[in-house]
Design a protein around this nucleic acid. Structure first.
Lengths: 196, 196
DNA sequence: TTTTGTTGATTGATCCGTCAATAAAAAATA
DNA sequence: TATTTTTTATTGACGGATCAATCAACAAAA
């Protein structure tokens, strides 16, 4: 039943299907047929709209990053102090929308794929840089620049590390614990401004 | 030129070839032919000794973990105080032997594969638990138990996070900086035993 | 009648795993 | 010691399966 204006709906359905397929299998080793099937269309249609598998994967990653970015912007808007801004950035990464098995598995899989795909690598670097600068925008108001830089780096590493450990279902079990762990770190770093 | 006693040599060569192949491609998507070729043998021989690809990959992961474990044991032996033990555990993970692009890429790839392979998952969990208990063996002598547990968890997450960021060639550029970052965290955690 | 949506069938490539065949060493036998 | 037999090492060729991508064809809207 071909109705006009299907393109954006199909694109979105295919991207959602890609996320859930990757999340379930835990890797990018999902077939176009599998994805298309989940979206309720044929694999030919997936190729019709995205051209090649690479581009569907890239579009999916872009979509995940866009959602994260939007969440981040929202969270930052409602933070008034520098300290709150730091906490907001951390909290978003462990919000219900982001810290889910599917999304986490997808992140991990994309990290690996980035080693092969230059386009994906570029995308992830943009995200990493943005995360860093978001953290820094809060920290710079509290700590001296070089120290703020180091704390931002450590916080980013903690976020990535907790994600990876969550994917393995080992270590930290839930979002609240993860946040508490990072906040605990930040608290010890921010409460005593004697640096070094 | 069939000479007897080739098996251990071939196994080793194939495992080394697997590591370098994975390291170069940045994922487990390497063919048996590619691996065998690097080891200077035919793919049929790789199958002869390892049966299936899964088992070669598993053997490779086991080998990497065994090396890390051996390094860890050595490092711990030469540490006399609890504090030194903590630093030793951290340092080993960023030693020249471990913190190399090839090995890091392999780690990351295996993390992803673990979501599919139960055997691999079990292996990684054993490693994670051992890392945790090694860290704890040092921290428990300095901090109260619950606090020590949390710091061990954070340190492990930092290690994983710095690995992942290294794989992306983003963030922390070298081993010394990574160690300094973690030591800086440990120092702030261990110097003020007022806990919370 | 042109545009948009859609798919079944097919192609071509890749790759794992197997197998029969070969050859050298080692062991057993004469 | 000379020979046969068995074990170990090794590979080229191939079967079979999977999958990405293409294409021709069809149907409904515009």
């Amino acid at each position: 039943m071909p109705k006009v204006g299907m393109e954006p709906l199909r694109r979105r359905a295919l991207i959602d299907a890609t996320i859930s397929a990757i999340g379930e299998r835990g890797s990018l080793d999902v077939t176009m047929s599998e994805i298309a099937g989940r979206a309720g269309v044929s694999s030919a249609l997936a190729h019709h709209y995205f051209g090649a598998k690479d581009e569907l994967l890239l579009a999916t990653m872009r979509h995940i990053l866009a959602e994260l970015t939007a969440d981040m912007r929202r969270a930052l808007r409602s933070a008034s102090t520098a300290r709150q801004r730091v906490s907001a950035v951390v909290a978003v990464n462990f919000s219900d929308a982001q810290f889910q098995p599917q999304t986490i598995a997808a992140w991990l899989a994309f990290y690996v794929e980035a080693q092969k795909s230059a386009a994906l690598r570029r995308l992830l670097k943009v995200y990493a840089r943005r995360l860093h600068s978001n953290l820094l925008s809060g920290l710079a108001g509290i700590l001296p620049r070089s120290e703020a830089d180091r704390v931002a780096e450590a916080t980013a590493a903690l976020i990535d590390g907790l994600y990876i450990r969550r994917a393995l279902k080992d270590g930290v079990p839930n979002a609240a614990t993860a946040i508490a762990l990072i906040e605990n770190y930040l608290e010890t770093k921010l409460s005593r401004r004697s640096a070094q």
